[in-house]
Structures are given as structure tokens and as C-alpha cells.
Design a protein around this nucleic acid. Structure first.
Length: 494
RNA sequence: CGGGGUGUAGCGCAGCCCGGUUAGCGUACCUGGUUUGGGACCAGGUGGUCGCAGGUUCGAAUCCUGCCACCCCGACCA
């Protein structure tokens, strides 16, 4: 069953619903380059809002932005063993720096064999290597610490399978890289940024997340500990929405980054790194949107309020426009972004449908009847309800309404999430819940990665995390029957 | 890398099996008019190297060979 906006229903084909929504809502499209997307203006506007809001939080927590090279010499990547192993399989490699006309085929270009690089350059899959190599020069004394740097950048990971926003070959992100004098301080920073991400997800994206720690085999290549936030999508699949890594002294060792302590001794620096990416766009889309289109939290909506004029004649249009512009100005004064949709080739119904598809939180419709009655129609995207309100109250009402919309979509997502954390005590029950209900499943696991692999092979579910503050609970592994100290969260995941 | 699919107007597609006027439909776009409180209608019009290369043929979007690209499913994925 298809709706009138040309998007399949979620229940019918979730994956296709997502793809079509991304395209129809004008967020992004596939590019001519395999695995790479074009982020269109409307989608990019949302990303810019995320960036701006996150960037402010980073700065408020003491971080500064900097920029490091796109290319990483191969030898840098080799230095931290775990890191190298983890990323080797998905790196784009630059081998030449020049093209020339193909002597065998007119009009074609080939890499000039004379321009082969002595050392190959890797297009960064992440920047630890190049940054820690730089930090060696920046850090001499405990007085240089902590060093709190963030970078907004693009990275490339040559994944075999891509999906718009969720996993693309090239993606945009921010990566924080900090250096500290003590282990405790570095862990504190790792946890601080995890909480920054969690609050950002909940307060800005309106997406509830579980804060947790990755198991050893799921952690970042090169990290001691990986913290993560895990969100739940409407199809019952989990999505890792952000990670914060405690790097220990691994990169300091690999790049020989030492500092002189207050006591005059030499010590290796402790590190962290943390990142969120355009994947958050995917989380945002999948967490809230419905079969009619996008549903955006007001704080991230490029257009928060759209005003649609209703009129029959030029004269009516003039009257409606005068009133609409007054409302627009009033709302803008309150910091709300407003679009007055006076496109004259489209009828109101078309505009209603289009703005719903694009997830504009509040729609105001203003026509001659309203002018006569001193009213205005106010429609909210999240609940698809509308009411007619006195014109005089609308400017006061809208900010309250926007806040209510945020709360509503957050609460809805939270209710869904909370009702989809299911404890199970047997493997059969586990499989059954996975098939019928999805979501997070809290189960006992023996701590053996062979067991986790077996579960993954048999059910496609992986351990998402061990939640922070997870209660100790003695039990037995649902698969092997061996003893377990606590439940961990499993789910199928993007 | 395996399996499947697609490539024809900006977008979405038909035509291909079974070769034959000027390559069609929807939508979008342009012009004029009527419309406008939930995706308007009428009339006229613009827009095409049919993915690329070669072959068969009097004649190729259609048949043959080769190649390329992208998408979907899987494997893979801090």
C-alpha cells in the first residue's frame, strides 16, 4: 500500500521507505560516484544546524577547532598496530600525483607512471595518526596539557555496502582529539563527550539513546575503551549514533608523544577521540518520520513555520500577504525561521503536502475567512492535527507549540524505545523476540567472542553495548549456559 | 566479491522477447486562460548522442559481442 506522496509505507518496506524519503524530501541523492552521495541544500541545512549546535557545545566545553590534512602517509597508519589492522581493509590509497594523455587511446588519461609516489598516501579514514604525529611537536610539558582539539572534516571508508547517510564511502563528521596528563583526566574527558553526545541526541535530535560501553571486539581499532550511544529506529534496529574512545597511551606510544611532568619526569600522554557524523541525519530521519514524510524536531528544522496563503483574487492575496508578513516578522523577532510560501503557481493542497513531506513542524494557513474572523489555522506536523486560533495569539502560541512538538516526538520515541528493551532468559526466546518485536534484547552472555559470533551468524544480532550503570546480575549465558555477571544489550543494527 | 536489477527528455517509466514511418506516456518546464480552505483544469509548446564501443542488417532503442556505471540483497563494516 502506497500513500499519495509516492513513498512506500514503513510497514511495507522500511528500507525502501527510508531511501525514498531521503530522496523525495530533498535531503540527498546518489551521486555519479559509487557509494557517495550528494547532500542537497535542504539536507545540508539540517546538517549545518547540527554542526552549529554541536560546535557551540564543544567550544563551551573548552575545545578549539583546527584542521589537519586529508592525506595520511601510509607509514603513519602503520604505527599503531590495532588501528592499522582495523582500518587497512577500507582505505583509499593515493599512488600517483599526476595524469597524462594515454598514448594508446586518444582523449583518455592515465596515471603518469613517472609520478608514482615514493610513499603512498592514504585518504584519512580517521585522523588519529596524522594528529598524534602532530601532537608530538605540540606537547612538551604538562603545561601544554590538556590539549583539546576538534576538527570538522570529511573522511573516506571504503565500505562494501553503502546507504544514504547511514554508511557512505565519503562522509562528513567531526572528530575530537584530546591529550591529557593523566589517565583519570582522559577517562573523564571520554565520558564527558559521551554525555555531550547523548544530550545532544536527546535535546536536539529528540532521539533517546542508551549510553554504554562496547565489548572488546566491537571497540574502536586503537582504543582501550569505546563508549557509545545507541539509538533505536522504528523498525526495531539499533543505530550507533556516536562514539567516544579512551585511547590510553596507545597513540602516544606509537607516535612518541611525551611530556615533562611537574616533577620533571617524562611520561606518555593519555588520549581520547570522539566523533559523530552525517549518520546522525539517518538517525534523525528514521527515528521520527512517518509514511507522510519527514518529521523534524523544531530545533533542527531549516524552516520551523511555513505560512500558506489562501486566496481567490489578487485583492485577497494582497490582504492575506499583508497579514502574513506581519505574523512572519513577529515570529522572526522571536528567533523562529519562517517561510511565507507565496508561490503563485501552486495551490494550497499541494503546498500542504509538500511541507509535510519536508517535515516543517508548524504550518499556518491564512485566508479571507480568517481575515474576516480574526483567526488563523495552525497545523502541527507531528500529530497531523490542526486548529483554528485567534490571530492575535498566534505569535505567542507558536514558540510554545514548537517546544511541545519537540517533547512529543521525543516522548514518542522514548516510549517506543523503552517498550523495546526486552529481557530474555533463553536463546529460543531471544530469537523469537528478535523476529517478532525487535529492539534491544537484554540477555546473559558468557563473555566469549566465539559465542557472540555464533549469535551473530545465527540471528544477525550483535552486542550493541553494556549500558553504563548496568546492574550486576548473576545468570547463565543463554547460548552456552556458562556463568554471566550481567546482561548485555543485543540488537540488529545498521 | 557472490546473487539480482537498472541504464530511453530534469524526474518516473513504457517500448526491446517478435528489428521497419517522425521513439512514446506521466510528471516537470514555457505560453495563454480559467482556478486556488488538502496534491486543479483546458489549449498550445520546448526538451532525446535510447549508458559506451564494435558487429549483423537495406534498416538497430530492439539482435550479437565486449565494456562501463549505478542501485538493491548478502558477505564486510571503529
Amino acid at each position: 500500500m502506497s500513500n499519495n506522496k509516492g513513498i512506500p509505507a514503513r510497514a511495507e518496506n522500511y528500507s525502501e521507505w527510508y531511501n525514498e524519503l531521503v530522496k523525495k524530501a530533498d535531503l540527498a541523492e546518489h551521486s555519479a560516484v559509487k557509494g557517495c552521495m550528494v547532500i542537497k541544500p535542504y539536507g545540508y541545512a539540517i546538517w549545518e544546524k547540527m554542526q552549529a549546535q554541536l560546535d557551540k557545545i564543544f567550544k563551551d566545553t573548552g575545545h578549539s577547532n583546527a584542521y589537519f590534512p586529508l592525506f595520511v602517509p601510509k607509514s603513519f597508519l602503520e604505527k599503531e598496530e590495532g588501528h592499522a589492522e582495523g582500518f587497512a581493509k577500507e582505505c583509499a590509497v593515493v599512488t600517483h600525483y599526476r595524469l597524462k594523455a594515454d598514448p594508446n587511446e586518444k582523449g583518455k588519461l592515465i596515471a603518469d607512471p613517472d609520478s608514482r609516489l615514493d610513499e603512498e598516501l592514504i585518504v584519512r579514514p580517521t585522523s588519529e595518526a596524522v594528529i598524534w604525529n602532530t601532537y608530538r611537536n605540540w606537547i612538551q610539558s604538562y603545561r601544554d596539557l590538556p590539549l583539546l582539539i576538534n576538527q570538522w572534516a570529511n573522511v573516506v571508508r571504503w565500505e562494501m555496502r553503502t546507504r544514504l547517510f547511514l554508511r557512505t564511502t565519503e562522509f562528513l563528521w567531526q572528530e575530537g582529539h584530546t591529550a591529557h596528563a593523566t589517565k583519570a583526566e582522559a577517562i573523564e574527558e571520554t565520558e564527558r563527550m559521551l554525555h555531550v553526545y547523548a544530550e545532544f541526541a536527546e535535546k536536539h535530535l529528540a532521539v533517546p539513546v542508551i549510553r554504554g560501553i562496547k565489548t572488546e571486539n566491537e571497540k574502536f581499532a586503537g582504543a582501550e575503551t569505546t563508549y557509545c550511544i545507541e539509538a533505536l529506529m522504528q523498525n526495531g534496529w539499533a543505530l550507533q549514533a556516536g562514539t567516544s574512545h579512551f585511547l590510553g597511551q596507545n597513540f602516544a606510544k606509537a607516535f612518541d608523544v611525551r611530556f615533562t611532568t611537574r616533577e620533571g619526569t617524562q611520561d606518555l600522554v593519555w588520549g581520547t577521540s570522539w566523533g559523530v557524523s552525517t549518520r546522525l541525519m539517518g538517525a534523525l530521519i528514521m527515528a521520527h518520520s512517518d509514511d507522510e514524510g519527514l518529521v523534524l524536531p523544531p530545533g533542527l528544522a531549516p524552516i520551523q513555520v511555513v505560512i500558506v496563503p489562501i486566496y481567490r483574487s489578487e485583492e485577497e492575496l494582497a490582504r492575506v500577504t499583508a497579514q502574513a508578513l506581519e505574523i512572519k516578522a513577529e515570529l522572526q523577532k522571536a528567533g523562529i525561521s519562517v517561510r511565507y510560501d507565496d508561490r503563485d503557481t501552486l495551490r494550497p493542497g499541494f503546498k500542504f503536502a509538500e511541507w509535510e513531506l519536508k517535515g516543517v513542524p508548524v504550518r499556518l494557513a491564512l485566508g479571507p475567512k480568517d481575515l474576516d474572523n480574526g483567526t488563523i489555522e495552525v497545523a502541527r506536523r507531528d500529530l497531523k492535527t490542526k486548529e483554528v486560533l485567534p490571530l492575535a495569539t498566534v505569535a505567542q502560541h507558536v514558540p510554545t507549540l514548537l517546544a511541545a512538538i519537540h517533547d512529543q516526538i521525543y516522548t514518542k520515541a522514548l516510549t517506543y524505545r523503552d517498550s523495546h528493551i526486552t529481557p530474555v532468559n533463553s536463546y529460543d526466546e531471544f530469537k523469537q523476540v528478535l523476529e517478532t518485536k525487535g529492539g534491544f534484547i537484554a540477555a546473559h552472555w558468557d563473555g566469549d567472542f566465539a559465542t557472540a559470533d555464533r549469535i551473530k551468524d545465527e540471528t544477525k544480532a550483535t552486542i550493541r553495548c553494556i549500558p553504563l550503570g548496568n546492574p550486576a546480575e548473576l545468570g547463565t549465558c543463554m547460548v552456552t549456559g556458562r556463568p554471566s555477571q550481567q546482561r548485555v544489550l543485543f540488537a540488529r543494527a545498521y
